[in-house]
Design a protein around this nucleic acid. Structure first.
Lengths: 225, 225
DNA sequence: TCAAAAGTGTTAGATTTACACCCATGA
DNA sequence: TCATGGGTGTAAATCTAACACTTTTGA
């Protein structure tokens, strides 16, 4: 193909996914040991190359789908990582994305087949190449997003207790919250609906289950939290 | 070169610069009419291709330097734009960056040679390809950055009046601010130093000039504004 | 003398934070 | 019966927002 930009050089483009999950009251990400050179054996994000016939966003969605079998996942771009030597093999520029999934929606068999594990974000091992930078930036963006929009529900089952929700916010923000103040703010959010269902797995007394009502939120985005 | 990733396709990588300036109490960006195909004649951001021997960040800095002759400019990545058809010529993925410069530091002769103009952000013409999306995202990020860190000084001369600073914040945020409340907050920021110099260009009475003291800020980042 | 921008404090309202006890249940 | 997590309100402190007049000076 003799195009417009023939004199310029091309690069390989990849996507890398920071997949957040919430389990045991801890914020976790999915990482695995690299099964290919270069960097074989090092802990790494899951990624893939961008094809010629797909947008970069689509490449990220496809990569996530390959790993998890999941679609309609909340995913946002983190940014481009383009140091010359970031890939020890060849020049590869990577676009990082973060995704929020509910751990229980991810088939554990599939997870094992891909050799990836849920690792507590507070106990992350050293990662391949610049993946630590990607994770750091993703956390920062995700935290800010959670502060301004109700995306936390993506990390929880569709029915959840207020204590679960509070633990999630605590894990993301890295600090404990006051139970009464937290519940007070939740009450003001009409898009968090109380159901009549009760969860007895977390306590003897049982706790009411709540759900996120997207249509109420879309009409009246009084975010904050 | 027979490398690790031979089976994957490569793409052209470019950078595009959203260059913000502040003039006549208005937030402006530098755009010009494309002088090449495809898209000749359309209003466009200034950009360039990423070379094989430079990082993406360095490509952005170089591109900005080519256009303005300026170095040590505040620059931040906006993100990757990677639709398949975003470039009518060939597959080009672009990484957008925004920069903050003081309009008066930019040699106007050089500006004219490159055929770019300062355009009020509120009166932007339609732009080439997805450049409007880039500008929108850049504005959003810049606004948020200005809210949390004192980067506004990058858009002003090193000596400025409080009214100039207020007009800058008003232009970025798109809303008027209360003079007394604004000045009250500024007084709390030790890194904004009052000088004994007086500017008489903006009023008959004259207004005190202030300066940003980076070392005070670096020691004690009580940002907010 | 007057138009135009500089400069200056106070108060009401809203928001945020701190804080402690009773309840329901299964083991 | 007791250990465990669920659930609830008030008051102080802080922060935010609204608001109007005097000063200086060049034209």
């Amino acid at each position: 193909m003799t195009g417009f930009y023939g004199e310029h050089s091309k690069v390989f483009l990849s996507v890398d996914c920071i997949i957040f999950g919430f389990e045991e009251n801890k914020l976790k990400i999915l990482i695995g040991k690299r099964q290919m050179d270069p960097g074989r054996g090092e802990w790494s994000l899951y990624g893939g190359f961008v094809r010629g016939d797909e947008s970069v966003d689509d490449a990220a969605l496809r990569t996530l789908y390959e790993l998890t079998g999941m679609r309609n996942v909340y995913m946002r771009q983190v940014g481009a990582f383009g140091s010359i030597d970031r890939d020890p093999g060849e020049r590869v520029v990577s676009i990082a994305y973060y995704a929020l999934i509910n751990v229980k929606d991810y088939d554990d068999r599939l997870r094992q087949e891909h050799g990836v594990e849920w690792v507590d974000i507070k106990e992350m091992p050293p990662l391949y190449s610049d993946h630590k930078d990607m994770v750091d930036k993703a956390r920062k963006l995700m935290k800010e997003k959670l502060r301004t929009e109700p995306v936390g529900f993506r990390l929880l089952p569709s029915l959840f207790t207020l204590t679960q929700l509070q633990r999630l916010y605590e894990a993301v923000n890295g600090e404990e919250l006051d139970k009464r103040n937290f519940r007070k703010r939740i009450k003001e959010m009409d898009y968090i609906e109380k159901t009549e269902l009760i969860d007895k797995t977390g306590s003897k007394r049982g706790a009411f289950l709540y759900r996120f009502n997207r249509s109420v939120y879309d009409e009246d985005p009084n975010f904050k939290l």
